[in-house]
Amino acid sequence: MNDYQLIILADDKQVVLERILQVTRYRGFLINGINAKVNTGTHIGTIELMVSSDRPIELLVDQINKLIDIKEVKVDSKTQQSTA
């Protein structure tokens, strides 16, 4: 298993968090932690998502990027490590 931290910028729309969590689970990633906050000035939400999986993280990044309300998905390379 590899650990990753994703930093996701999203429009502050209803259910955006639910959508991200659903895709993450469905695509085979375990959710280890989450921080989410909304900048009320810009209406942009920032979601930090800690996940682990045997699957390449690019598969999840591409799928989250397809969600309509997502503006950006980055992998924090500092957090990438194996827990196997």
């Binding site: 591409d62 799928q63 990027n65 397809k66």
Partner: peptide, 8 residues
């Protein structure tokens, strides 16, 4: 057309 299909 779908980036997510590449290398999937």
């Amino acid at each position: 057309i779908d980036t997510a299909e590449i290398n999937k």
